[in-house]
């Protein structure tokens, strides 16, 4: 069974690009447009990885990470946070919240896949 990844971003462009790259590498991709939506999509489904943007309406990425970490089913699901270049503060905030790692936007497809390999069991 292929690994399943949830991509969360309020920007459709970003979602499309993440999704396109991952699907091309054989992953199954779910999409959500904000944190709350992500939790709805997650439900009790088995997901191997969550990739989330930070700045989103309704529930931002960091709140989503916290929600995942305190979720009975998903607490050990890896979560990657999408940050922008040189935003060191965001990285540490992400870690504080419980993120597994981060990807710096903009990213090349290979870089995304490389990082995904690093955290996706």
């Amino acid at each position: 069974m292929s690994k399943r990844i949830l991509a969360v971003d309020d920007s459709k462009t970003m979602r499309d690009m993440v999704s396109f790259t991952l699907k091309g590498a054989g992953f199954e991709v779910l999409e959500a447009h904000d944190g709350q939506h992500a939790l709805t999509v997650l439900g009790d489904e088995k997901v191997n990885l969550v990739i989330t943007d930070v700045n989103m309406p309704n529930m931002d990425g960091l709140s989503l990470v916290r929600a995942v970490r305190s979720h009975p089913v998903h607490r050990s699901t890896p979560v990657l946070v999408l940050t922008t270049e040189g935003d060191a503060a965001k990285k540490s905030e992400g870690r504080e919240a419980g993120a597994t790692g981060w990807i710096v936007k903009p990213f090349a497809p290979e870089k995304l896949l490389q990082v995904v390999q690093k955290v996706c069991v």
């Binding site: 920007s11 462009t13 943007d53 309406p57 922008t84 903009p106």
Partner: peptide
């Protein structure tokens, strides 16, 4: 303010890509 920030942030991210 958050919404304004997000708009510009999304544009930047896409532009970067």
């Amino acid at each position: 303010l958050n919404s304004i920030f997000r708009a510009v942030h999304s544009i930047k991210a896409g532009a970067g890509a």
